[in-house]
Simulated assay, not measured.
Amino acid sequence: MAASATRLLANAESVVHGKRDEIKLVLGALLCGGHVLLEDVPGTAKTILARALAGSIDGAGFARIQCTPDLQPSDVTGLSVFNQKTRDFEFRPGPVFANIVLVDEVNRAMPKTQSSLLEAMAERQITVGTETRLLPEPFLVLATENPIEHEGTFPLPEAQLDRFFVRTALGYPGADNELRIVREQRRGHPIARLEPAVSLTEVRELQAAVQEVYVDELIERWIVHLVGATRDDEQVAVGASVRGTLALDRIARAWALLDGRSFVRPDDVELLFLPTVGHRIVFRPGFLAEARRTGRQEALERFRKRSLEAAPAPELRDDDRAAAANAR
């Protein structure tokens, strides 16, 4: 399993340079059956990452939904059309019936269209008329948002934000990686030369392998207390739900697997806390004022530190470390 995970990660990195942790987050969501919200400015390889991920999986279908205010739910899910030859209705599937679905600028779609994604993301199925259809497996929604432009947008409601497994941003590449990108694309984009690294079957096996990653009981209890600490923070109106606890446990397992380990370490949880839990929090005006003054990322980092102070990481005993070692 480790070899498959390494090949998949390396293949995506061959196209999106210098963003190993962000790619691991997206792959972790895929292996956990979750979905990703990429909140970033244009031109930071969000689309390329989605295409690279689909291109790295042999047989995976890729679809892109460009969100605009006039996008209808049927444009996403598909619709039944009357066939005059057969004198019957036939279903024409929408772009959501792909393994990897890129939803560009999801906050530009009307709320009713945004909500059409909810059933697909949560239940891995869609209902058109009276008939319910299952979506392919694996299934990953990569939705993007532009954090700068707000005119003509419809902010995602908390219920839909909570459906996203992780939220992250790719950001601009470093100078060396940007120079590498310039040189590579003089004779075409490397995405055109990308070859599959794993099969759909191997991805499903990796998803099953995530469940076998060892998590010490002390770390399990700590994850519960850490997420619970978000509900008691003075700057929080509504803390993370149980869905956040489940997501943090699962993404930590997937992260360990992608890192070549069969056990979770406390620093995995600390690193993944904000990408997994941060978007599930409803903050009070005091936090929002601090975010405007210092920047949202710095305000979130202070929130993370407060949560870790309220629920400190456990000190693993020697026998706990031995159990983790035996899980390798």
Rank of each mutant, 00 (worst) to 15 (best):
A2L: 14
A2F: 15
S4A: 10
T6W: 08
L8W: 04
E13A: 01
E13K: 03
S14Y: 00
H17Q: 13
K19G: 14
R20V: 07
K24A: 01
V26I: 04
G28V: 00
C32A: 13
G33Q: 09
G34A: 06
H35D: 09
H35C: 08
V36T: 05
D40R: 01
D40F: 04
P42Y: 07
A50V: 03
G59F: 00
T68N: 13
T68Q: 04
L71E: 01
Q72K: 13
Q72I: 08
P73D: 05
T77W: 04
G78L: 08
G78P: 11
G78T: 08
F82V: 08
F82N: 10
F82K: 10
R87M: 04
I100F: 15
V101A: 12
D104T: 12
D104V: 13
E105W: 14
A109G: 12
L117A: 02
A120I: 07
T127P: 06
L134P: 12
L134V: 12
L134Q: 15
L135K: 08
V141A: 01
T153M: 06
E158R: 07
D162N: 06
R163D: 04
F165D: 03
A169M: 00
A169I: 01
L179H: 09
R180P: 01
I181S: 09
A192W: 00
A197P: 00
L206N: 09
L206F: 01
A208V: 07
A208G: 12
D216C: 07
E217A: 15
I219R: 09
I219A: 11
I219F: 12
E220P: 04
W222D: 04
W222G: 06
A229E: 03
A229F: 05
E234I: 09
A237N: 08
G239H: 05
A240R: 08
G244E: 05
A252W: 01
A256K: 02
G260F: 05
V264L: 06
P275Q: 08
V277K: 04
H279F: 02
R280N: 15
F283Y: 14
F283R: 12
P285T: 02
L288Y: 10
E290A: 13
R293H: 13
A299H: 15
L300M: 13
S307M: 09
D320T: 08
D320A: 09
